[in-house]
Design a protein around this nucleic acid. Structure first.
Lengths: 304, 304
DNA sequence: ACGCCTCGTGAAAGTAAGTTTCATCCGTGG
DNA sequence: CCACGGATGAAACTTACTTTCACGAGGCGT
């Protein structure tokens, strides 16, 4: 069958569950019902027969099979095996932490802290697991060799975009970030072959970012998308797709764990680029650090 | 359906594989052949179909089923699931993560990713562990009851400050962030009793931030410091001190893990504040989410 | 030594699970 | 309003799993 022509990862060595939840929004309603059951309790799903699972999801066996294919499995038995393996690997969280879920109404601060930290750490780890080093490598290559790098992002993702821009700038790469769509579009129009455009959008549906990336691509720049959903619209205008693995819930809508996951990816790219020319990057970092030295007090020792 | 009538422990905590090899000698020759295959490579066995396994063991499917029963399973599918789980669990340990330290010069992307993610996740977890819920509680109280909240930060911490400002704003709290010291000072001068000033500085030595916080304190505002170093200068001008627990290394100087740790703290405060008035916060989040809805494309599922 | 019982075994029949096909139904856009 | 394409479940179909059964190789008492 015709595979997507772009370089995204059909690779999910990390969590299968993570992979599935990323794909969730790209599934049809009936498949989503199946997916939710599976994600909610992988071990239980592994125990069920296909008919059983279909019934539980209020759908037909055919749909379950379609779901298997959608998430990259050959068939139901394979899914079962993988789910069982997956479930076994995750050593159940020691205490009954509210995993992935919303924060219970009566929670005290300590509980809130534990929950958030747990989910945040998880998002970071899972993101790293499912990141495809090969794709990263190519993105790093592109950035390291780029004449100019534009980073786009709106809302919460805009912070990440701006952060990345700042980082690249610090090691001497010419990078830009635009808080405003119009300016961004203008800039994208001026990109060309050899330049790189990176669009960040958690949902992958932010039209502003997609539009700008599209423009950049039309001008011949290499386009990179960073999103949580591997089949979202933004991936269609990207040459390279990098995904995060955050499962957001109500309160944390589109902004908490996903942000950290995005930052982790951005950091990886940054270090990758910096490592391309270690000496020069190090020098640049030192120089920029010195520059702000006069804005620090008591240079003295601090204790960790 | 009739469940197995016995209550005995078909429970072998030591591991299914161990269990099987234990009763290997008590099995019939043909079953032993099956058992040996299974023990030799559980993961592989889990992948095979019953016919396949039977052929490999030079026996019939019937014998494989008998073997399943002999080791206490209901049937072949159950054995498969258990084997998959077992195999997954035992592969885990070997994890040559580059802990803590700097990233080695010759590292490839995969190593870089693992290292960064590990350190980032660690920073988040450790930060949460050492956060004092009591202090957080008081800070949350102060923010929830504040007439106005100013958030200060420079450089990488500025990014976090701005993020927090935006979050508070989204749930209807009056919050400000100033990218520029002078404006910040002006604002601080206008604070008063009942207002809150939060200064973020990883090192705790950023004079700009300290200065502004000092000003705010002089005007009667409650001052909060968020830093990695509990004895750094900034803590001297703060009523409440919140600390992160990031151990940065050269390449990541002052900007990577610490940022994530800061964001985690900020998220905790945010959720804490939001939880003070759940209904209103939720409403506000929904409204703001709707506002950007028109900037999203196709709720859309992409094709497979 | 002979029959007879027991047990391990696989062939084949039988059942259940998984997979494919196809007609129908819906929303979308011409 | 119709044509189209995707989503969906019923049913046909295939494959996997399970049971049944008959055969044959020892063991053992007579």
């Amino acid at each position: 069958m015709a595979k997507s022509p772009k370089i995204s990862a059909s690779h999910e060595p990390g969590g299968l569950i993570v992979h599935i939840s990323g794909l969730l929004p790209s599934l049809s309603p009936a498949e989503q019902r199946v997916a939710r059951l599976v994600v909610a309790d992988p071990a239980d799903a592994a125990r069920r027969t296909i008919t059983d699972l279909a019934t539980a999801a209020e759908t037909s066996e055919a749909t379950v099979i379609r779901f298997c294919r959608s998430v990259g499995m050959d068939g139901y038995p394979q899914l079962r095996i993988r789910l069982a393996a997956e479930a076994a690997r995750r050593i159940e969280p020691p205490d009954a932490r509210v995993v992935g879920g919303d924060i219970p109404p009566g929670a005290d601060l300590a509980q809130i802290i534990a929950t958030i930290a747990f989910n945040d750490a998880r998002a970071v780890e899972e993101t790293a697991e499912q990141l495809d080093p090969a794709v990263c490598e190519r993105v790093v290559d592109a950035i390291a060799g780029a004449g100019r790098i534009d980073v786009y992002g709106a809302g919460a993702s805009g912070f990440v975009a701006s952060d990345f821009q700042q980082k690249l700038h610090r090691i001497g790469r010419t990078a830009f970030y635009f808080p405003d769509v119009h300016t961004a579009l203008t800039s994208a129009a001026l990109l060309g072959r050899g330049d790189v455009a990176l669009g960040i959008s958690h949902t992958g549906t932010t039209s502003d970012v997609i539009e700008v990336l599209e423009q950049a691509r039309a001008r011949g720049a290499a386009t990179v998308a960073l999103t949580n959903f591997p089949r979202s619209p933004i991936t269609e205008v990207a040459d390279y797709v990098l995904t995060t693995a955050a499962r957001e819930t109500t309160y944390r809508s589109g902004a908490m764990a996903s942000r950290l996951a995005q930052l982790t990816v951005v950091d990886c790219l940054f270090v990758g680029v910096a490592a391309r020319n270690r000496a020069r990057a190090k020098k640049a970092l030192e120089v920029t650090a010195e520059a702000v030295q006069s804005h620090r007090v008591g240079g003295g020792r601090r204790r960790a």
